[in-house]
């Protein structure tokens, strides 16, 4: 008799029903965050992709504006994360959101670099992650939500940024932009030296990315070297002419797309 009814009335089963609810709601939240993070990743990648077009089209401003709009959309999504994490411990769900957050850092810092030719700071990023929400009780004043990006995610995003900078450099060379590669190599070298200073004191994932970073820097330095060596055969102003004459058909092509 006891065994039979056991599975229905036992305190063990009752306790496990509570655990079930707790775990399910935790896992559900986790899954929701994973999905938001995935959306953030995709949209950030698209923004980066869009930003790469600055090397081949004349209307840089237009692209920057379009990217800004996209980034606004991403920030809305980060707002959803902030809402999910209201009152929670961010680090409990960190694994769910870190890919998206890193990708956002990559995108927003890429945008910032193209616009200002400098490295965005963690504070500047966080300053734009403040969200005003209508409170649930409609007559209360609207509440303010913030999201603070962990330093490690910031670092990892910046590490990935270097890969994009390298790609931008290669494209610039291909398109005859004479200044960007040199600017990029200086900037990349600064970031590289910064990471070298941190070395293996940071999180493990950062150390893992150092090798790729070093490779990217090498590629950029090689590109600058090539420009210098080839440039030695012709006066610089002629060099610009040569490429500006090439730029036209390329643009035409791109406008078709």
């Amino acid at each position: 008799k006891i065994e039979d009814s056991g599975s229905h009335n036992s305190p063990i089963i009752a306790a496990f029903r509570v655990f079930q609810q707790e775990l399910d709601s935790r896992y559900d939240k986790y899954e929701r965050l994973v999905k938001i993070s995935r959306d953030i990743t995709i949209e950030s990648k698209r923004t980066i992709f869009l930003l790469h077009r600055v090397t081949s089209v004349p209307d840089v401003e237009g692209i920057l504006k379009e990217a800004e709009v996209k980034l606004d959309g991403v920030r809305q999504k980060i707002g959803l994360i902030a809402e999910e994490l209201r009152g929670e411990d961010l680090y409990q769900f960190h694994r769910a959101i870190t890919p998206g957050i890193q990708e956002y850092v990559e995108a927003v810092s890429f945008h910032h670099f193209i616009k200002h030719r400098s490295l965005i700071s963690l504070e500047e990023i966080n300053a734009r992650l403040v969200f005003i929400r209508d409170s649930k009780g409609s007559d209360e004043s609207p509440s303010v939500l913030t999201f603070q990006i962990p330093a490690s995610d910031f670092l990892l995003g910046i590490a990935d940024l270097t890969g994009e900078l390298m790609r931008m450099c290669i494209s610039s060379v291909g398109n005859g932009d004479m200044d960007t590669p040199f600017q990029l190599s200086g900037f990349l070298r600064e970031i590289h030296d910064g990471f070298a200073l941190i070395g293996n004191t940071g999180p493990y994932e950062v150390s893992k990315k150092l090798h790729t970073l070093r490779q990217s820097l090498g590629k950029v330095e090689d590109a600058c070297y090539t420009l210098r060596v080839r440039g030695s055969e012709i006066p610089t102003h002629m060099l610009a002419d040569v490429f500006s004459s090439r730029a036209v058909p390329l643009d035409a092509d791109d406008n078709m797309a």
Partner: peptide
Amino acid sequence: MSVTEMFSYIQGFLSADQD
């Protein structure tokens, strides 16, 4: 804030965390 300063600043975070 220069890139170097920025990284020094972040290294502060990391050291505190390691401690």
